[in-house]
Design a protein around this nucleic acid. Structure first.
Lengths: 133, 133
DNA sequence: CGGTATCCAGCGCGATACTG
DNA sequence: CAGTATCGCGCTGGATACCG
């Protein structure tokens, strides 16, 4: 139906950016804050400044490589601040910027909702008897 | 310092689930709703019921395989409802459940925030001159 | 139309080793 | 301590073909 197609088109054009494109900046930033380790870093840093190794221990199960990569990305996005103390041994602290704090609070809202509703979801899944993936 | 470790421990135990474990149900559900195509499906369905091919066209760039897989996952999670009309040609409609609507609105809040702030992030990135990944 | 089945290329990510 | 460099495997996901 042409009408249905038209409705869809108008719906799409109403959106500000289009997250539908993988190259879209919004999509990229969204991927950063919702990524496996990105979201956890943001959540941990809500509680305050942390050092590199503290972050690693607090999160758990993250390799140094992925932690460093994640931190670089979030810093480049302006979501967190990296402070280097030129001492021996070296000491580097990470904290949220204003932008990062906003992002982190949104992530926390989302994760809180998930945690509040996960039992409902799991009941649903077990009834269906499958797809425990 | 032992104290720092203690603080961290107490911080972690304060959380309800621990998203830090990849096998944690909460983490899995979070991955589903924030996944590449999962979030887009939820956003599109806020506007109302859609057929399989309509979803595909509305989202754009998604393969049939990934769309089907995403829809199965979200249906298994109880986030969306799949209605099959046994006609020829077949017709299948997808709509959000109450749970799915809640999730979708949270996703929309997050994506709206990202779109509102993406310009700030991009300015930040271009100043730094690198990491356009 | 609305899927499933199969194949396989790319790269995300962990493991390991090394550095200032 | 806080990383970077390199290698290799595993799984995600796209392309293609087929089905009810």
């Amino acid at each position: 139906m042409a009408t249905a197609a038209k409705v869809l088109t108008s719906r799409r054009s109403r959106r500000k950016g289009n997250l539908y494109d993988a190259q879209c900046p919004s999509r990229i930033v969204l991927d950063h804050v919702t990524s496996r380790w990105g979201s956890l870093v943001l959540l941990v840093l809500i509680d305050g400044t942390q050092r590199f190794s503290e972050l690693g221990r607090a999160i758990g199960g993250v390799s140094e490589k992925m932690l460093a990569q994640t931190l670089q990305t979030l810093e480049a996005d302006g979501l967190l601040l990296r402070t280097v103390y030129p001492t021996i041994p070296p000491k580097v602290e990470y904290s949220l910027t204003r932008l990062g704090t906003e992002a982190a609070l949104h992530i926390r809202t989302l994760t809180n909702w998930v945690e509040d509703n996960v039992s409902t979801v799991m009941q649903f899944r077990s009834k269906r008897g499958g797809l425990q993936k």
